[in-house]
Simulated assay, not measured.
Amino acid sequence: MTLALIAGRGDLPALVSSTLKTPPLVCGYEGIALSGVSADMTFRLETLGTLLLELGKRGVTQVCFAGGLDRPPLDPSKIDAETAPLVPMFMQALQKGDDGALRVVVELFEKTGFKVVGAHEVAPDLLAQGGVYGTVWPDAQMRADAEAAAEHILKMSPQDKGQACVVANGKVVAMEDQRGTDAMLNDLGNVVDGILFKGPKAGQSRQIDLPTIGPETFDSAHNAGLRGVVVDAGDVLVLHPRECAARADAHGLVFWARTGE
């Protein structure tokens, strides 16, 4: 056993685990229900020091984060002795945006001697492959909207808000926040001629929290009245790509992974 999987919500942990010849040590955050995998051990922020110590004892050398994890509050009454020295680093992380907090977490694991590997390194087939997945192709307006969306994500990167936005006829009509893509789409109502775009922020670490879409993304996009879902090839994880393409076709949506931009 050399790899520990820090598992969160969704199908990504199970998909990553299924690619490994040797089952990983699955570490679940207390209170988060896992799908397709079972936790070998659980932890919370206040016991992270103990987790790091236990991983070392079990011979773990690599750690992979997979699945959704909310930024938890810190309960001082639950901090154990092994974690107490890490509190200053925790406080620094919790004051930063999502990307900044994740960088601190990665740094903590690396300083402890673990190599943090991205989900895409363990399961490279999950990365979006360039091209059109379904049968509906993007038109000129959609290509222009995708360009505008990508520029907006890069522009907003210093604010560390999110990895997705909705653009219609060249205008940004919604931006993802810490609640996630589905919440953004559910709040939209009906957008005429809009697209969902998803891609990484400027300078984003690829070790953790790469943008991710799955079949449900296409249901949400359809319910919001959008025309398509566009991602950056090689920079976004696609869960169950065949099912994503089937859902896109069923809803008459474009599913395009753009390349070369």
Score class of each variant (00 low, 15 high):
M1L: 05
M1I: 02
L5I: 02
L5P: 01
G8N: 04
R9D: 04
G10A: 14
L12E: 14
L12M: 10
V16L: 08
S17G: 11
T19A: 15
P23E: 11
Y29I: 14
V37A: 11
S38R: 15
L45W: 13
L45V: 13
L48V: 13
L48E: 10
G49K: 00
L52S: 07
L53Y: 05
K57D: 15
G59V: 09
V60A: 11
G67R: 04
G68Q: 06
L69N: 09
R71W: 07
L74D: 07
P76K: 06
S77P: 09
E82T: 01
V87E: 03
P88H: 11
A93N: 03
K96G: 13
K96I: 03
A101C: 12
L102F: 04
R103P: 01
F109M: 09
F109V: 04
E110M: 05
K115M: 08
A123F: 14
P124Y: 10
Q129P: 00
G130V: 05
G131V: 12
G131E: 12
P138W: 08
D139N: 07
A140R: 14
D145E: 09
A148F: 04
L154P: 02
P158S: 11
P158C: 11
Q159D: 13
Q159H: 10
Q159P: 01
V173F: 10
M175I: 10
R179A: 15
G180Y: 01
D182K: 10
M184T: 11
L185H: 05
N186F: 13
V192F: 08
V192I: 06
I195S: 06
R206C: 04
I213D: 03
P215V: 11
T217E: 00
N223D: 12
A224K: 05
R227S: 07
V229Q: 02
V229T: 02
V236L: 03
V238T: 01
P241H: 00
R242E: 13
A246R: 05
D249A: 07
V254M: 02
